[in-house]
Write a protein that binds this DNA or RNA. Sequence first.
DNA 1: GAGATCCTTTGACCTGGATCTAAACGTTTT
DNA 2: AAAACGTTTAGATCCAGGTCAAAGGATCTC
Lengths: 217, 217
Amino acid sequence: MIAVNGGFSELAGLIGDPTRTEIVLLLMDGRAFPAGELAALVHVSAATMSHHLAILTAGGLLTVLPQGRHRYYQLATDAVAEVVELLGSLGRTPATRDNPLAEARCCYNHLAGAFGVDLRRALELSGLLHVVGDAYELTAEGGCAFLKLGFPHQLLNVRGKVCLDWTQRVPHIGGPMGTAILDLALRQCWVRRTEIPRQLVVSDIGRAVAAGFLAVT
Amino acid sequence: MIAVNGGFSELAGLIGDPTRTEIVLLLMDGRAFPAGELAALVHVSAATMSHHLAILTAGGLLTVLPQGRHRYYQLATDAVAEVVELLGSLGRTPATRDNPLAEARCCYNHLAGAFGVDLRRALELSGLLHVVGDAYELTAEGGCAFLKLGFPHQLLNVRGKVCLDWTQRVPHIGGPMGTAILDLALRQCWVRRTEIPRQLVVSDIGRAVAAGFLAVT
DNA sequence: GAGATCCTTTGACCTGGATCTAAACGTTTT
DNA sequence: AAAACGTTTAGATCCAGGTCAAAGGATCTC
């Protein structure tokens, strides 16, 4: 094989190994993990983990932030997360509610799943959020409402990427705004993380907030 | 490794092999190919090709239509094509015009690339096409215009899936309507196939037609 | 039917790469 | 400095699986 095809096989080969898949899946919740912790979680030796992390990093899927004697690994871009999301949707019947991940989950570093989609829809219908070009922006009313909820004021003008949810085939809010909203949702206990990496559980508060947005006129 | 992760690694592993990547890439133009022809194109023995085709078929990525002593293989669903498209967009800078595939190409069995996106935009702006729910439909005016161009009348009511172009991050027309439009475009010489599998070249006629749609009020 | 064409299956070969242990490297703490 | 901790590198092992030649079906042509 002389010339490589467009890098497809290399890229797919990166995720093609079961151990590397586990790594990427763990990292899909957007947080950075040190190598040793990943090794323990995936049940391989530290050496093996280091090996795979090097491969994934060289392949551009991961970035590493050295901090002291730890080296924290995380997904390189949200594009990586999107590919993984989409890959996960293949083979599955779309929008299966049997999977708790369909209800609410992290997609890289923002809210996805039914709750993420519902939230976006509620915000848009109530006029708190609108699409400008290919990005989401808060409206003036949206800014006021979010400030009251504890949204950091320096992030009010941040934009959100339109991100497709592959279990539902419907857009939700990604990008910087998505990250800020996930932060807010975690701090305000709209959702909480579970022991399963990407999975989130929606609290009663979360449901009430989403419903509340719809009540705004 | 006892329990499989969500089937991610299996799926990625399918495309992870260079030979299988070539196969899938060839099949991305939506047509079905007999096993022998694929073997010749990819430069492997018939035995090897048969082996890989069996794997891809078992994995759900391909389907096979036996016709006489030939067995024609093709992509199983358009979801497969989407994943491959998205995979291809990783690692690349988005919207690179250096790649002829960005100008116009087949995405499974419909038009993609800049031309596909432009066409969709022109049709939508001129009121010939509109979005109903999550699908495209021709308007009454659109139906008339398409009939004059040779569009088969029995397909006028067919719907198109909203399909994202990953080199551009902008939607174009997929689904049954997308297939019908690609057929039309090929018959009317708006575009023609090249020796490179998925690549299409836009003719002057094609450009004129796209411009013409914009002129409609 | 006999022969040709197309595809798959079988069996054997061989390489790539995943994995581990052990040792080296770098950082922080004492 | 020395010890403790986290990570990477080196070396060795071992197996999955990609590959091809040869044989076996299946289907068409004459």
